[in-house]
C-alpha cells in the first residue's frame, strides 16, 4: 500500500504552550529547510502562516470568480426571460429594461460568491476528512483547546527520524511525539 519509503510514521509532532513559541518553532523549522510541515492551533495565528512562508490564499480569486459568474448569470437569466423567452409589456417599458434587473443581479452575485467561498474553503482544505494521522497523537485533542502543535511530515526530503527529533527537541517543546500513519 505505502508508496513512500518511510512507511509506518506520518511525522514527528512537537507540542507547545503559546502562540509565540509555535511561531518561533515554525520560523526555525522553515529556516532549517523543512517544507512539508503544518502547525495546529486552537484559533487562527496569522504569524505561523507567515513563518512557514505560506503562499497567499486562493480564496479571494475563487470568490471573485463565483461572484462574477453569479452576477453575469443572474443578469442574463433576466434578459433572456424578458427579451427572448417571454417578452411582456409591463407599463410600456422596453423589454430590455436593465435598471429593474439590477437588484436580482446583485443578489445572484452575493449568492454565488458566498457559495463559492464556503465550498471553495471546504475543497481547498480537503474537507470533510474522516481520518487523519495527526489524531493518532493522544494529546492532539488539546489542539482544538489550548495547545499548539508543529508536525514535520515524513514525506519531507529533509526528514530523518533521529535528526528531526533532535531538531524539534532543541525548540524546547512540551514533548515530541511520533505520529503513526
Amino acid at each position: 500500500m505505502e508508496a513512500t519509503p518511510t512507511t509506518g510514521i506520518y511525522g514527528l509532532m512537537a507540542e507547545f504552550d503559546t502562540p509565540t513559541q509555535i511561531t518561533e518553532a515554525a520560523e526555525k523549522a522553515y529556516a532549517a529547510g523543512y517544507r512539508k510541515m503544518d502547525a495546529y492551533t486552537p484559533f487562527p495565528v496569522e504569524e505561523v502562516c507567515h513563518a512557514m512562508q505560506m503562499p497567499k490564499s486562493k480564496m479571494s480569486l475563487i470568490v471573485l470568480t463565483g461572484g462574477i459568474l453569479g452576477g453575469i448569470g443572474g443578469f442574463l437569466l433576466q434578459v433572456w426571460t424578458a427579451c427572448v423567452y417571454y417578452p411582456l409589456n409591463i407599463g410600456g417599458r422596453p423589454n430590455f429594461s436593465w435598471p429593474s434587473f439590477i437588484p436580482i443581479t446583485f443578489e445572484c452575485t452575493v449568492l454565488l460568491g458566498a457559495l463559492s467561498a464556503v465550498l471553495g474553503m471546504i475543497f481547498l482544505n480537503d474537507l470533510p476528512l474522516p481520518y487523519h494521522p495527526v489524531f493518532n497523537n493522544p494529546r492532539f485533542n488539546r489542539a482544538s483547546q489550548d495547545k499548539f502543535f508543529l508536525c514535520i511530515e515524513a514525506d519531507d526530503p529533509k526528514f530523518n527520524a533521529a535528526d528531526t527529533r533532535k531538531f524539534l527537541e532543541s525548540l524546547h517543546p512540551v514533548e515530541v511525539a511520533e505520529i503513526e500513519k
Partner: peptide, 12 residues
C-alpha cells in the same frame, strides 16, 4: 468535517 486546526486551513 474532520477539522484539525491546521495553520494551512486557518489560512483559507
Amino acid at each position: 468535517l474532520g477539522w484539525r486546526g491546521a495553520a494551512s486551513h486557518w489560512h483559507n
